[in-house]
Simulated scan of single mutants.
Amino acid sequence: MIERLENVGVVVEDLDAAVAFFVGLGMVLEGTAPVEGSWVDRVVGIDGLKLDVAMVRTPDGHGRLELMRFRAPVAVDCRPDAPVYALGLRRVLFGVTDLDGVVSDLRARGVQLMGEVVQYEDSHKFCYVRGPEGIIVAFAERLEQLG
């Protein structure tokens, strides 16, 4: 039985830019490391696998992203502008306490909203942005305490 979600893996070309983006949102860099050797080859089923990994976590310690840059084999390109309704993993959503402040900070760093900030009934405000390399990052602010 599943006990918890350990992390979500995200493959990027510019590991430093991806780390800077998520740390800029308030995530904490837990560490970086090169990963290679027979153990990872056997786990993944690819001989000669070499990658660099950065693990970032949410401030509460419950959510993690494993940011990965592959050195061998070279990462396969996919559409970084894929729409939110494309097949596959499309977005990561973070809960925030001040969505307007997050949006202001993102805009100051040149990040644009994909749509707009929208309030759903009296419960949440949401928005989507494109992070580094087309990663869709969503934010939700809870407006009232839910039961």
Rank of each mutant, 00 (worst) to 15 (best):
I2S: 08
L87M: 07
V76G: 14
L106F: 11
G26H: 04
R69S: 10
D98T: 01
D41K: 02
E141L: 04
V23M: 01
P34C: 02
V92Q: 03
V96L: 03
E30D: 08
G134T: 08
A140V: 11
D105H: 08
D47V: 15
E6N: 10
R64N: 06
V10F: 08
V35L: 13
A82N: 07
A75C: 10
P132M: 04
K125W: 00
E30M: 12
G110M: 04
A108I: 07
R109M: 03
D60R: 00
V84M: 08
A140K: 07
I136S: 09
A20M: 01
E116H: 12
V129K: 06
D47K: 09
V8I: 11
F126A: 02
D81T: 13
G61E: 05
V103W: 08
V23F: 01
D16C: 02
V111I: 12
R69T: 14
Y85G: 12
V102S: 04
D47Y: 07
A17R: 08
R64H: 07
V84Q: 10
G101S: 13
E141M: 08
P132Y: 06
F94L: 10
G63Y: 11
D105Y: 15
P83H: 15
G63N: 14
I46E: 06
V84N: 04
M68P: 14
G95I: 05
A82C: 04
Y128D: 04
L87I: 14
Q145K: 14
V35C: 05
C78H: 15
S123Y: 09
D14N: 12
Y85K: 15
G147F: 13
F21K: 03
L29P: 00
A17Y: 01
G101V: 03
V40Y: 14
A75F: 03
G134V: 06
R142A: 07
A86Y: 12
R57G: 11
F70N: 14
L25S: 13
